[in-house]
Design a protein around this nucleic acid. Structure first.
Lengths: 210, 210
DNA sequence: CGACTTATTGATCGCTTGATCAACAACGTG
DNA sequence: CACGTTGTTGATCAAGCGATCAATAAGTCG
């Protein structure tokens, strides 16, 4: 009667298994948020025993931070490539905003907002959040500075303007997270950012609509 | 040896005790965030047994939602009164921004950001969040609309502009929560909002500095 | 083919959470 | 001063968390 039936297991190289576990954590975080990254749920997602997750990861806090980095770095990298394709600063910014506020990307908002609060009890995560935010700021700052130099934007402090753009992006993302989808976002948003950057009316709106 | 020593208790009217417990929850949330509002921590803060908290509250989710409402409604009310004192729309907005981004108010940011994520598993809280956000939006919208009418602001869609302002406020608040305090916030922010609303340069900056 | 290395399992510990409830005692009442 | 109502206590339950570790078996190597 006590054929307690041990599950059949396949041995894999530590590197491969470790990657699988991290991948499972990333997929889980993308789907249900960072707070869904638990020892047991990751184990289930990776189809391994709970103990194995703990074995391959220093701590769950670290795994959460890793998942955050993977997801948000990938997003930034994606945006960077899209931005690279555009020629003018205004075009770059328009593409950036269109990408960030794409509806497909709502899940990333959840990851960000959760990271801000979870960072308060997870210093590893907090450090990651700071790093990726800095990277975002740098990307935005570059675009704004280029626009200021070319005359497309009339900004006195590109660095500060980049912070405010980032704040705007974060805030609006958080809003959609709760329940809002103010309908005419792209067009009106373009108009808004034109003003923020002192661009000529229409330079961003036209690009944003495509 | 089994003098298990029951703590001396003072009987109070249900209304009074109930108020004490809610007050303790509010104070706790203000100090350490909504996530600190636990059955036992609230009990300790109110100096009662854990069971009493459960006795006076339908569920902890409800208590968290109540604490959120109390804190954020009070903030909004405070801002409303300050805004009322200013005469021009630009002045009202300048006062509003100065108040919201006052350093003393950092704790409220934590409450907001936590509410956005906790609302995902607490429908009572989610409903409260939507309500208070609507109220904020209405307040901002009124100011912007008045400014549009008076000619102080050149905005085509006050309603949308209010959403964006709110997004900006929320996003920048969240940033300070993580670790940022971009130094020259008030002045540069005023300039930013002038542009957002198409106000004449200086109308907000001058007021914000006071 | 047997032995050894080691990837993997799953039970387990200790802790925290919200919630329940029998027992207790403080206060108003007769 | 005793009685009874009821505000209050604190132990307790069940669930979920991260982490640990002895036991197990898969794959490799002589």
């Amino acid at each position: 009667m006590s054929r307690s039936s041990r599950a059949t297991s396949v041995r894999k190289s530590p590197a491969e298994r470790s990657a699988e576990i991290v991948d499972a954590a990333v997929a889980l975080a993308r789907r249900e948020g960072l707070s869904a990254v638990k020892l047991r749920s990751v184990a289930a997602a990776a189809a391994v025993a709970p103990g194995l997750v703990a074995h391959y990861v220093p701590s769950m806090d670290a795994l959460v931070a890793t998942a955050f980095e993977r997801i948000t770095r990938a997003e930034l990298e994606e945006v960077r490539e899209i931005v690279l394709a555009a020629s003018t600063p205004a075009g770059k910014l328009a593409e950036l905003l269109a990408t960030v506020f794409d509806d497909e990307r709502e899940d990333v908002s959840l990851v960000w907002v959760e990271a801000w609060t979870m960072g308060r009890g997870n210093e590893t995560l907090a450090a990651s959040v700071r790093d990726v935010m800095d990277a975002w700021h740098a990307t935005l700052s570059d675009i704004v500075a280029a626009g200021a130099e070319s005359g497309d934007f009339r900004v006195t402090a590109p660095n500060e303007a980049a912070w405010h753009l980032l704040g705007l992006i974060d805030g609006l993302s958080a809003q959609t997270l709760v329940h809002w989808r103010p309908a005419s976002r792209p067009a009106v948003l373009g108009e808004l950012v034109e003003r923020v950057l002192g661009a000529r009316p229409g330079t961003l709106v036209a690009l944003a609509v495509e």
